[in-house]
Amino acid sequence: MRLPSRSSRTAQSVLAAAALAFAALAATAAPGSASSTVGANATTSSAAVATSARVLFDNAHAETAGNADWIISTSQPSPYNQKSAPTVETDWTGAISAWGVALAQYPAEYTLATNPSGRALTYGNTSNAQDLTKYDVLVIPEPNTAFTAAERTAIMTFVKNGGGLFLIVDHDQSDRNNDGVDSVDIANQLFNSNGVDNTDPFGMTVAYQNISNENTANLGSGASTHPVVNGAWGTATKSILRGATTFTLDKTANANAKCLLYRASVSNTGSTGCFFAVSTFGTGRVALWGDSSPADDGTGQSGNTLYDGWNDPAGTNAEWALNATDWLGKLS
């Protein structure tokens, strides 16, 4: 599996470390302050670019239901315990293990963990070893069981207080465990019934679509300069859609909602047909991707038939995933 280089991000970390050791050089060697534009009903703040990020991948909402395997490893990496990085993608087993392995090869910048099946997402629960207060980025790769009301509040509070949420949804009727809800339903419920802000806080909703086999390189207007598109892991220019949906943006609900990649057939300035979207809420950041196939690396547990979208030449799918992780963790 392809593991993209991240030399520019590593170089920035070296500069940050030098700045800490040699304060006199801070003005020229350290990463500068980054202005953080926040979501609706919040204020603008300024925060230094981070030098490390703690990333939690969720596996507590049936991410392996049916013919799916949206985990980085079956061994459930413990939080803050990635001292020995895997050397090749096959060191870990999971359909998004290439994503995890790429990050784990930079242990000075990333610590990884998996939220295991049966453990609720919490914020401010000191008895939970994987409480969201201990993480900078939460990745939820196609949930198939609904979040409880308490979990929706925890996720939104996490983002409002500075966390990064990466939510991957799939096409309409992708109910892999046949419980009556799919990732489209689950995402829209999170956006509109969360106990923190129930008025479309991110400025986006998920459409009920099933786009079967398309490719797109239709970047949103002005998207080429965004760190998710032009980032330390390379340039994200295109993506595959293999059973996908899109997002509808509402800038009146949140002026910071932005589409980075549209379907090929729509305007790159419109409010519909958005395939990769970003937004902010409070001091946190949000990224939404409309299909699980681009992050799928084709490997996983025995019995699952998977698709290698990570390496599909019709997309720069690894770059979307990895640059977005950087941006959500405020490494860029």
Rank of each mutant, 00 (worst) to 15 (best):
T10A: 15
I211V: 13
D200V: 11
F57I: 15
G284M: 05
D312C: 03
N268L: 08
A108F: 11
S174G: 09
P77Q: 06
N198C: 05
N81I: 03
A236Q: 06
Y135N: 00
H171L: 11
A53H: 06
V278Q: 11
T246K: 06
S52G: 03
N144H: 13
Y262W: 12
I240Y: 02
L306D: 07
A287D: 07
L165K: 05
N218S: 12
D197T: 06
D179E: 12
A65T: 09
A47T: 14
A264C: 04
N323V: 08
D312N: 15
D69S: 08
N218Q: 13
A60L: 01
A21R: 11
T44G: 10
A154H: 02
A24C: 04
A324Y: 03
D297I: 00
A295G: 13
R152N: 13
A149T: 13
K83A: 14
V278A: 08
S33Q: 12
T90Q: 06
Q301H: 09
H171F: 11
N125I: 05
C274S: 12
T51I: 08
A108Y: 12
Y135G: 01
T272C: 04
D131E: 04
S174R: 06
T325N: 08
N67A: 10
A314G: 14
A255F: 00
T87C: 00
S97G: 02
A149R: 07
D69V: 05
W289K: 12
V266N: 06
S52R: 12
S75C: 03
D250L: 01
N125P: 04
S293L: 06
W289M: 15
D136H: 13
A149Y: 03
S239I: 03
D131P: 05
I186N: 11
M204Y: 05
V38F: 07
V206M: 10
W310P: 08
R263Q: 15
A324P: 02
A287G: 13
S46V: 15
Q173V: 13
N125H: 02
S265V: 14
G164S: 10
L167E: 03
S7C: 04
S84N: 14
W233G: 01
